[in-house]
Write a protein that binds this DNA or RNA. Structure first.
Lengths: 194, 194
DNA sequence: ACCTGAACACCGTTCAAGT
DNA sequence: ACCTGAACACCGTTCAAGT
């Protein structure tokens, strides 16, 4: 049962198509990557392609719908890391969470973090981009106040860096490379003593 | 005048097409990014599309031809950095060179560094991938012997990281983000005292 | 030997016509 | 209100026919 964040409720048949498309998209994105053919998704969902384009005006909208729940989990995890750890370790551990998720979903989440220049998605502050940005901002602010992080580091930079790592390691047999790159990044983020 | 690295010399008209295609590709890749339409390149070169596909069996082959000279420059620069600096600074400075180049070419070079699983391109050790890998290996070995770099870092990781940064910042108005990310990476690479 | 343009099987997106 | 499938303008790649 997907989440119910809809402007106004859809007619029953429209909602059915919506759900089928999201479900098909989950499979096809996982199989073919974030650049998968939308027509193939519509085909597997058993709907016309125009239906897909009306319900999801851009590829990004569809990705948002597919990953919304997971991103919520990630933000909940951020709160838990903050509650259970010192500020520095909380941030670093959560960057590990984010990286693990991004790697597991074959860099798909990365497609969400990129740019984010989708007018109406920014207005309503619900997009995955906004949710994740808020989560990392909170962790980063506390870590900076504790002096656990080098000065001059921005929240967007941290997201971009994890994003970058999962993008670059997406097509790679060496599954551990993402971990090694994250390790380098973390060493570059932390202050003298953590 | 492009480089002359050809298995066997082409017939005059073939060579003319080869040069025209590389020249058109340089423009179109710069304008549309590394995913640009090959048909558009053939069109702008004034050749049939089959000619392009025969001369350059894969998109990667064409990218190699376009960037070969610049990559040679970069490798020459690596030698200069090594000659003029201490091992640690030489490596870090050259990573800056690589990043500057990758950003300037809108992440195009990144497409070259990725994967590199192109059978015949690896056999003959001339590919851009191999040239750059050799360059960074040399710099890294010396820096590691000098203790200027954290242990456990691999040459492929450094390339992947720069690759990642230019990929992730390719579509970004904030031109300085690549620099900030490189800075984080460099702090993560260097040892205690450099 | 090498080139060309048409041909084929695909895209993403839109639009008339249906219910 | 919502859906559908055909239509359009594009791809990448291949192949017959040309010189």
């Amino acid at each position: 049962m997907p989440h119910a964040a809809q402007r106004r409720p859809l007619r029953a048949d429209a909602q059915r198509n919506y759900d089928r498309i999201v479900s098909a998209a989950r499979d096809v994105f996982a199989r073919d990557g974030a650049g998968a053919a939308l027509k193939e998704i519509a085909r597997q969902a058993g709907t016309g392609s125009a239906t897909l384009h009306r319900l999801f005006p851009s590829r990004r909208t569809l990705l948002e719908a597919v990953f919304h729940d997971r991103v919520e989990d990630l933000c909940a995890m951020a709160a838990r890391r903050a509650a259970e750890n010192e500020p520095g370790p909380a941030l670093l551990a959560w960057l590990g969470d984010l990286n693990a998720y991004a790697s597991a979903s074959r860099g798909l989440a990365a497609s969400l973090l990129q740019d984010g220049r989708d007018a109406d998605l920014l207005e309503q502050n619900e997009g995955c981009q906004a949710m994740i940005t808020n989560a990392v901002r909170g962790l980063l602010r506390r870590a900076q106040q504790a002096g656990a992080v080098r000065p001059g580091i921005r929240a967007e930079d941290l997201l971009a860096l994890i994003n970058a790592i999962s993008l670059a390691t997406e097509h790679h047999d060496d599954g551990e490379q993402a971990d090694r790159l994250l390790d380098i990044a973390i060493q570059g983020i932390r202050g003298q003593a953590v």
